[in-house]
């Protein structure tokens, strides 16, 4: 049985398959309306996440399946002290597939070892968020028509930003990708990613301290939020939260076909005036997230539109 715990659990071929499937879902929605009929998705959200949970639920409902679950630890038996292993063993008797978010890193890994049905990691603390990575790949694929030969700028919190770490690992598997890291010194990419990914695979990258100096080079600009919950120290958070803000002025020197991405929610790192720029892709990104989750659910459940 296949689970999705780490974004790198999927091979490039498996990702390609899902991207094509999601593409087909977008083009022929009616074909997929009943493919998960009588199948149930359990959304076990031990910490709140409106966006990801709704995206999973919408994905399953659009495939004709149904959804059950909880949206915070308070409304689950973990409030009574139940372990993740026990919760999952119980729930996997009720559902055909599980999407799980948990504040503790590695919790979905524990769940996958005990579950009788496929488990999807819907985010485990600051660790992994593989369906966000799939969403990002889907966005790049749809907006650029390729996943190779491009320069990707990653901006903001590169130290704690798990989406950034995952997209680097995922995109480093494609040909001729150049990475540009835009962050303050305090939030620069961890050394182990530079060594394990860039240096080991001999991938070209550079680190800069301002967005303006690299703007004309970028094909993708991936913005991130400086997240309060990733800091142990409130003072550090306040000092760094406004480090990098994208506005229409900075965009003047950007390529006409730049694709601006953000995992959302945003706070103030993208000026709302940028929303009207055709290069802003972050709301489309959430929509792509639903389609790639539909493809993922179908793949893990082993269903297809051609079965009948």
């Amino acid at each position: 049985m296949k689970h999705l715990i780490d974004p790198m659990d999927l091979s490039v071929q498996e990702i390609d398959h899902m991207l094509h499937l999601a593409d087909d879902i977008i083009a022929h929605k009616e074909k997929y309306r009943e493919v998960c009929r009588y199948k149930k998705l359990a959304t076990l959200f031990f910490e709140p996440s409106t966006r990801t949970r709704l995206s999973f639920e919408a994905a399953m409902l659009e495939l004709g399946g149904s959804v059950l679950g909880f949206s915070s630890a308070d409304s689950s038996s973990s409030a009574k002290g139940e372990s993740v292993s026990d919760t999952v063993q119980v729930v996997s008797g009720y559902a055909d597939i599980i999407a799980m978010r948990h504040p503790k890193e590695g919790a979905p890994h524990v769940a996958a070892r005990r579950s009788m049905v496929p488990v999807i990691n819907a985010g485990d603390g600051g660790h992994n968020h593989p369906t966000q990575t799939l969403t990002d790949l889907m966005t790049i694929y749809r907006e650029k028509g390729r996943l190779d030969n491009m320069t990707i700028g990653l901006c903001g919190d590169l130290k704690f930003g798990r989406t950034v770490h995952s997209i680097i690992k995922a995109m480093s598997r494609y040909e001729n990708i150049h990475f540009v890291m835009i962050s303050p010194e305090e939030l620069r990419l961890p050394e182990y990613i530079i060594k394990d990914v860039f240096e080991k695979k001999q991938i070209s990258y550079k680190e800069v301290r301002t967005m303006e100096e690299v703007m004309p080079e970028l094909d993708i600009l991936y913005m991130t939020r400086v997240q309060r919950e990733r800091f142990f120290n409130e003072a550090d958070y306040i000092r760094l939260k406004d480090s990098f803000i994208l506005d229409t002025y900075k965009l003047k020197r950007a390529k006409q076909d730049l694709c601006i991405m953000h995992p959302l929610p945003r706070v103030n790192e993208i000026d709302i005036k940028v929303d009207d720029d055709p290069r802003a892709c972050y709301f489309k990104q959430t929509l792509y997230g639903k389609y790639i989750r539909m493809a993922l659910i179908m793949t893990l459940l082993g269903v297809s539109a051609d079965e009948d």
């Binding site: 372990s83 948990h102 503790k104």
Partner: peptide
């Protein structure tokens, strides 16, 4: 020893 790791709270792991 990562305080954010599931092993810090999950019993019998």
């Amino acid at each position: 020893k990562n305080p954010r790791c599931i092993t810090s709270v999950e019993r019998g792991i």
